[in-house]
Simulated scan of single mutants.
Amino acid sequence: MAATMTVGQVAEAAGLSRRAVRLYEERGLLPPARRTPAGYRLYDQNDIDTLTFIRRARALDLSLDDIGAILTLRRAGTAPCTAVRNLLDTRIAEIDRAITDLQALRATLTATRQATADPSATPEPAGGVCPLIDR
């Protein structure tokens, strides 16, 4: 397929910014674009497909390194779906840990706030910064 689209056109077609397209090319996620004699990058439908994949993978919060590994597998002729499932499982576990940590923090904050619900029970500090946190 002939490379006929400029960076702006391919960015719009993939739902990305021009800057993102250049970044993904710089990071090796997108093969280097052909150039016109004037130095303008030229792209084709395969590039749009790759960029669309990258955008969707980023929406799932996959890292650029993870996306690069997936693309490397695919370009080597290997179906990357097993690797993708493993990455998704890892990401789900990370999110579950973050949720647990946030719930524990919320419980601590709520308990601290409830223990100091009456402003008259907490005099202004004579020393320290704020008794609400200092204790």
Rank of each mutant, 00 (worst) to 15 (best):
A3P: 05
M5D: 01
M5Q: 09
T6N: 12
Q9N: 02
V10I: 11
V10P: 00
V10D: 00
E12W: 06
A13T: 07
G15K: 11
L16N: 00
S17K: 11
A20K: 06
A20T: 10
V21L: 09
L23R: 01
L23Y: 15
L23N: 04
Y24E: 01
Y24F: 07
E25T: 01
R27C: 11
L30A: 06
L30R: 03
L30Q: 03
L30P: 02
P31I: 09
P32S: 12
A33N: 01
A33I: 04
R34W: 14
R35F: 05
T36H: 07
P37V: 12
A38D: 10
A38N: 11
Y40A: 12
Y40C: 11
Y40V: 02
R41F: 07
R41T: 00
L42Y: 03
Y43E: 01
D44H: 05
D47L: 01
I48T: 07
D49I: 05
D49E: 10
T50D: 06
L51T: 05
L51E: 02
L51R: 02
T52Y: 02
F53Y: 15
F53T: 08
R58W: 00
R58A: 01
L60F: 15
D61V: 01
D61M: 10
L64W: 01
D65G: 06
D65E: 10
D65P: 01
D66V: 06
G68S: 05
A69V: 01
L71Y: 00
L73C: 03
R75T: 05
R75A: 08
G77P: 02
A79C: 13
A79M: 14
T82P: 12
T82W: 09
A83K: 10
V84Q: 12
R85Q: 14
N86E: 15
L87C: 02
L87K: 07
L88T: 08
D89T: 13
A93V: 03
E94D: 15
E94T: 04
E94R: 11
I95Q: 11
D96G: 06
R97P: 03
R97I: 00
A98T: 12
I99V: 14
I99R: 06
Q103V: 10
A104K: 09
A104T: 08
L105M: 14
L105A: 12
R106T: 12
T108N: 14
L109I: 07
R113S: 10
Q114K: 09
A117N: 13
D118S: 10
P119W: 08
P119F: 04
P119D: 07
P119G: 05
A121S: 13
A121N: 11
T122H: 06
E124N: 15
P125F: 15
G128Y: 11
G128Q: 06
V129D: 14
P131H: 15
D134P: 14
R135S: 12
R135K: 15
